[in-house]
Each structure stands twice: as C-alpha cells, then as structure tokens.
Design a protein around this nucleic acid. Structure first.
Lengths: 199, 199
DNA sequence: ATTAAATTAGAACGTTCGTTCAAAAGTGCA
DNA sequence: TGCACTTTTGAACGAACGTTCTAATTTAAT
C-alpha cells in the first residue's frame, strides 16, 4: 500500500520531465525555452519552477536519470549474454536504442558554455564517463575470459566509444534501425583487432 | 599591381572573420553573440553589419570557407602519397589538424534549429557531404589499385567517417596531438577490414 | 576647401529569455 | 463551513539577444 497522496504532484512532475526530455533531445538545451517546456507539458511557466529549481538543474536531472537508467538496464541485459563478444554486439544495440545521444550532445553544449559553473561541468563530465566504463568492463571480461588479447585497454575503450558515438550522431540517418547493420559491422571489425590470435 | 584600395575594408573584413572563426569554434554558434564578435574583433556591432548581412550568413560563410580550404588543401596534399593506404593515414591527420570539428558541430546546432530556413539547412548539409566524398574517393582509388577489396563502398565510407569524427570530438582530450596515435590505430584496424586478401 | 561617398561607432529597438512574485484555485481536515 | 496547506497560474522583471538607425568620422576626388 502506498502512502496516500493528497495531490498528485509527483505525477505532474513526471509529466513535465517526460515532455522536457523529449524537447531537449529533439532541439537541444539552448534551443529549448522554458516557455516551450511549459507549452509542451501543459503547465504554466511558473509551475515548472515550483517543481524544479531552474532550467539547468532540470536538464542535469534528466541527463543523470537517462544515463543511470541506461546503465542499470545494461547491467540487467548484460547478464543474458554468455560471452564478451556477444556482449559487445548487445552493447552496441543498447547504445543505439537507449543512450539518447541527442540529449547528451546537449550536455556538451551546456558544458562548453563559459558561464557554466565548475560544479556543473564536473557533473556533466561524470556522466560522460559512464559508457566508457561500461565498455571497458566488457573488454576486461573478455581479457579475463581469454576471448580477447588487448594491449592497451584504455586505448581500446576509447576507440570503441568514439566509433559508436560517431555512428549514433550521423545526421544522414532517419531511422535508428538503419544504423543497426553499421554498428554490427563496426563491432565485427573492432573485434577482429582484439580477438585472441591476432598480432 | 593591385588596384589601389582607398580603404582597407577588405582587411578589416578579414580581421573580423578570423576572430569570428575562433569564437564560433570555441563557443559554438548560439553561445557566441554579435557583441562577442564585436569585442573580439575590436570593431563595433554596427560595423559587423556593415560587412555581413547578419550573424547566420557570417557563420555559413565561415563554415563554407573552412570546408573548402580543408578540401583544397587535402587535394594538394593527397598527391604526395603513393598508395591509398598511405592516403588514409594522411587523411586522418588532415582531418585532425584542419577540419575544425568544433566549428562544424556548431553547424549541426544551427541546422537542427526548427526556425532555420530550408535553404540554410540544405547549405549546411552540403558541407557535411564534402569529407565523406573525400573518404570515398580514397577508398575507390584503393579499389582501382587493387589495394582494397571493399564490398559496400557506401558503408565503408560512413564507417570511416563516423570513427574519425567520433575521435575528433572526444571531450577528454586537451591537445590535438594526443589524438594522433588513436587515429592511426583506428586507420590500422579499419584497413585490416578492407585490405585485399581479407574475407 | 568643398563635397560626396565610404567607413565606423554607438545608441536604441523590439524580442525573447530565464526567473520571480503575488495572488488565485484546489484540497483535506477540523 | 472555515482554515491551513499545497498546487497552479499568469503577469511582470531585468538582462541579453540580433538587428536597425542615425550620426560622426574618414577618405579621395574636385
């Protein structure tokens, strides 16, 4: 039994967050005004400030939530794969369909603003670490397994991350699913460079 | 003998363009105000509008100029390499040091603005085509040479472009030169997938 | 020296933005 | 019903933005 709520404030808050996530993802941080957030959610501008300290805090909240959910979902999903090799393919798909690349690109936009506080920049930077660590964990597992032979773990993780990110940012692609074969091909090529038995 | 110029308007125009290029590259389109351009160039806001129609036109002018110079420079440089394989390594370096990734990321920012005119979007899109075509030309040359065996040319060009772009956008890197070994490694891995004799 | 054109500056305009505020409306309990 | 509290609104603010305008200054030719 939930504690009885007199108002459905939490529900409203979630509604605002959902429509805000959509707008930020589609149009970026700077190109999404609080008035836009108001119109899209159906609540007044003032009301948005009742629930959130300001636009920046709302964005960071959404970004963190997105990354955390992405990561948790991945942890759950990863258990189903029986090899590190399979995990890499699965990770690529997971990035494609869950990572919200456009939202996090907006984060870079914010972080690169000279007026942004150091704390904000740090917070956004921490978020960008999450996927790299996830890649590295899979690579490490493959090393421990004996599936992979990786000389420079850092380098490999970065190469992998950059490739997937670059692919997810392609402007010429309309449907995410069009990207899937490209991601698969990238993983296949990348795997060839770290598979045991390679020089 | 040049035609005698009564005013050095052209020189001033170039000064403004140079400092504008710097600012747009560092801070992005939206986060660079005309006031900033004025301050950095040392000329008044009004004067900027004497030389350029508006902020958007100035930006597009700079973006086109940047890409065109990048391409011309590459064409000249490419002649010096004797194989398509070497050309790929050279191209990676050329992208790294001449492509002005941050500036063209700003272009995406502009293009994704819902208020941007169709003409503007088209113009910016055309710019994004340039590097892909350059990659493809090298891949094609390698095919004609017999150096490469590529099944899907489009796919390969996209994979290559995405990887290089992703690497050039890494936020964790301070000095461009730190990226060079990563780019080289990426090319090496990529080459292995298209070298003749591979499956 | 006068004049017309080119160049430059800086104030001003109309918008839009993020944010604040005072008040209204809704809600559940006494 | 009355009351204290939460929720919601919408007007208003000051700052910043891109742009325009007027006027001052400089230049080169008469």
């Amino acid at each position: 039994m939930l504690t009885k709520r007199r108002y459905d404030s939490e529900k409203v808050k979630k509604e605002i967050m959902e429509s805000a996530l959509l707008l930020f993802s589609q149009n970026g941080y700077n190109q999404t005004s609080v008035a836009d957030l108001s119109k899209a959610s159906g609540y007044s501008k003032g009301h948005i400030y009742y629930h959130f300290q300001n636009k920046e805090k709302l964005f960071v909240l959404l970004a963190r939530k997105t990354i955390e959910e992405w990561h948790e979902k991945w942890i759950r999903k990863a258990a189903a794969y029986s090899s590190a090799t399979e995990k890499l393919y699965g990770m690529a798909r997971h990035v494609l369909y869950n990572y919200q690349t456009p939202l996090l690109k907006s984060g870079q936009e914010l972080a690169s603003n000279p007026d942004s506080s150091a704390g904000l920049v740090k917070e956004l930077y921490d978020l960008s670490i999450v996927p790299k660590n996830a890649y590295r964990a899979v690579l490490q597992e493959g090393m421990d397994n004996g599936e992979f032979a990786i000389e420079n773990m850092d380098e490999s993780a970065i190469l992998l991350e950059a490739w997937l990110r670059g692919l997810c940012q392609l402007t010429s692609i309309q449907e995410l699913s069009e990207l899937e074969p490209l991601l698969n091909e990238a993983i296949t090529i990348f795997l060839r460079s770290i598979s045991k038995g390679d020089t």
